[in-house]
Design a protein around this nucleic acid. Structure first.
Lengths: 335, 335
DNA sequence: TTGAAAGCGCTAACAG
DNA sequence: CTGTTAGCGCTTTCAA
């Protein structure tokens, strides 16, 4: 038999109103009766009925705002957000969204500042003006969750995203398994080393290569600025300059442009890329790419909403302030 | 504003009782009013409030029974079952469990037959006596979900488990990526080819090898009966008989015993195994094993409970009658 | 064939 | 400081 508040009320000889006060740490209850109630809760192993609670709270109004780019990767993130909101449909939550594409930081900051939402989930670069903007809100008790990219010292309750260094290490381990000989030359294609994200992947990768103790070295780190034309020209050049290249690690999200380069060249390399955008999928299936490391964009949307909800409604913080999403390995056979 | 039954009642000019009758296809409602109500539902885009429903149904009693072995793999499955039950804690569901270890089919059949539960999730071998036992219940409208291993023609509402053939293909693709030369000799370690599960993995593997068009062949399929001593002796023999072995695919769950063989030999092979039991974890981390293909036991427990619940409470069948759990690739770097 | 009303567990507003 | 009560959306029983 499930234990209800009514039962603890009876056992401890008080009314259900008082039980509620004790359960939620509300004021106006004599320490002595509080103890008595807590004892009863303990004894009967009470746990709340979420349906009853949801129903009673269904007239409260909450609002959550998500700040993120609008692109194919984040559209999967958005699916996670929508799924979380759908699960919470019994609650009166209004959702708004700020798309950052083509907006200056100043503009984004204005939009966030003006937005009156009770909670925010944001995927933004870590810069001082953004940090200040967020701090202004978190200082007033408005919860923020950063996702995909973390922002330091802004008062966020947690970060949800990929362990980038680890994803680089995994990429290296895959490469090492594919290079059977004890030697090998590798090209790394990165976005831009001024982004911490790309640097972390690259250093995870190179660290793991070194740790293997084998004669497998990186001949060059090509930076593409995640731009199609630049990817094309610079990768072409690098492959000509290093005809002994065995494997290529694409640490950035620019696998799209990279795919067409490899198709054109026709030559086969051992290739590890990231994510699962359409051309990556294609490349995995036709064998141009060997592995992709998937960072689960769905979870990156789903979790922050659930965390913010729990904070708003149950005043509960997540267990850790950094939540890493799975690094999954994808091969063509899996698609 | 969320739409409630009260609102459709007002719009269509009937009472909320009638709305409920229409929503659940209950009898005793004039076709004409039914139409009117349906129109209102459509127009206002009503969707039910699950909390309200859960509360109203919380006095109903349901019972679910799980039939499965008690071993390390299935203890992860059990975690999924418990997680699903925890999510449904607002409902009055009692759960019972039949462990199959060391029980004869006859005994298992007796226990299932005697069990009065409203719904069953079962992981059992596909045999005629079991099939008949299940049919006797499904014929009376009691829902069954098979998980991990399917049972044909027993009237189950669906199966939740791994796509074994696909897992074999994935294993082959990993092996092919590791064997850089165009040639290679492979040993397959299977449990017992009389089990469809093992056969399917092996044929997925060999089919994918052949499809590659490369000179990579299987020198022998060793059967271990998933027995420690047999695994040891037969694998040892096979490796001596085929000193040119490059890679080993362990299609069965007997990676535990297999691990100690490889440790003792000291020689390194390219190795693909299954699941993530303790010694597999160890083997992946120390480099004895390259990849493991993980079949997500948690989901294999979680999903069946959710499906049975949905059937019992919402009369809803799953979208498909076969639900494959993820085939995930694990490397040592990921642990 | 339909309406009215009670009650599921919980919260919140009000009364004492 | 504590008790009482209404009401959240839904199902179900009883009445009409």
């Amino acid at each position: 038999m499930k234990i209800s508040q009514k039962m603890i009320a009876e056992l401890s000889g008080v009314s259900r109103g008082t039980i509620d006060r004790v359960l939620h740490g509300k004021p106006n209850v004599k320490p002595e009766t509080r103890q008595r109630v807590l004892a009863a809760i303990e004894k009967l192993k009470y746990s709340p009925n979420t349906a009853g609670r949801a129903l009673a709270l269904s007239k409260r109004e909450y609002s959550i705002c998500a700040v993120l780019p609008d692109n194919p990767f984040f559209s999967d993130v958005m699916k996670g957000i929508q799924a979380a909101l759908a699960e919470l449909s019994d609650y009166n939550i209004s959702f708004s969204c700020i798309y950052t594409n083509g907006k200056s930081n100043a503009e984004i900051i204005r939009l966030i500042s003006e937005n009156e939402s009770n909670a925010f989930a944001v995927a933004l670069g870590d810069s001082d003006d953004i940090r200040e903007c967020i701090k202004a809100k978190t200082d007033r008790g408005i919860p923020f969750v950063t996702f995909n990219t973390d922002i330091k010292d802004c008062g966020r309750i947690c970060f949800v995203g990929q362990d980038l260094y680890k994803s680089g290490r995994i990429a290296a381990s895959l490469m090492l398994k594919m290079l059977r000989d004890d030697t090998g030359r590798i090209l790394i294609v990165s976005g831009n080393s001024k982004y911490k994200a790309h640097r972390e992947r690259v250093s995870g990768f190179t660290d793991a290569l070194k740790a293997s103790g084998r004669d497998i070295t990186v001949s060059e780190v090509v930076e593409t600025d995640d731009d199609k034309a630049l990817t094309y020209s610079r990768v072409m050049d690098a492959l000509k300059k290093h005809p002994d290249t065995d494997g290529i690690y694409v640490a950035s999200a620019s696998a799209e442009a990279f795919y067409s380069v490899l198709c054109e060249l026709g030559k086969r390399y051992r290739v590890v890329v990231n994510d699962l955008l359409p051309s990556v999928r294609e490349g995995l299936m036709d064998g141009t790419f060997d592995f992709s490391i998937f960072q689960n964009p769905f979870e990156q949307g789903y979790r922050p909403i659930k965390i913010l909800f729990n904070y708003l409604v149950n005043k509960r913080l997540p267990e850790t302030d950094i939540i890493y999403t799975d690094n999954t390995v994808i091969t063509g056979e899996m698609l």
